[in-house]
Amino acid sequence: MTRSRRHGREALLVRKLFRKTRFGFFALFAAVVLSISILSITSVSRELRDEYIINSESIAKNIADSSVDILLNRNLATLQSLIDQFVQIQSIRYIYITSDTGEFLAHTFIPGIPEEILASDHTATEPVDRSLPGLGDFIEVGSPILSGVAGTVHVGMDLELLGLKTQRAVGQQIYLLCIILVTGVLASIWLVNLASRPLAALLEFVVRLARERDEDRVAHDDLLVRDDEIGDMARLMQHVADGRAREGGVRTGKGR
């Protein structure tokens, strides 16, 4: 076996010691990324949904406050014009206004009011999830007009858009975490290699000490001059080897 091949084999033996360490690093980073992603998905989704509801409630209240005089003046064209302006906001998919008796006074549905909406409680103001065939999934909130005696405004916010927003926000976070994960793994490999290199050299040194005869012995100045634990161990090994060599020499002399 050549000298270089022996060196490679010994380095390989040392790196085996760090394989578990590298795997440990990777597993740790992956666990961190996974747990942060799950936390992020749930918290971002919840926060965006809450924000959606708050926004739609404020829009519904805004329309309700603006509608009082218009409704009392029976000016439904102006009322329609009012909700048409609000429905231009990206996340709002529909708005409808019902009278106190449940009659639909203005709405933005095309080609018609969905049956589910027609059948719903027109006085409800609590947020409710709706799935309308052909239209999609929505969160609907309501706001009473003049405490409900003049009617109720209902605003439907697009859940699909909310999902897209959530995906985008979470995706950005996961993207960042993945970059950190890859960087961390690469860094850990580099660090392990950095730490394993002198250990491999030390191992090689020890093996040679054990095998080599005095006349074959080569200098290992690079190890012996180190001021860290590797250097200490090398010097100790050298000392032990030198001691054994001296003992061997005395024993040989006596025998003569």
Binding site: L76, A77, T78, Q80, S81
Partner: peptide
Amino acid sequence: QNDAYGRSGWA
């Protein structure tokens, strides 16, 4: 027409 014009006629 689902706008102020249509609503006016609807009314």
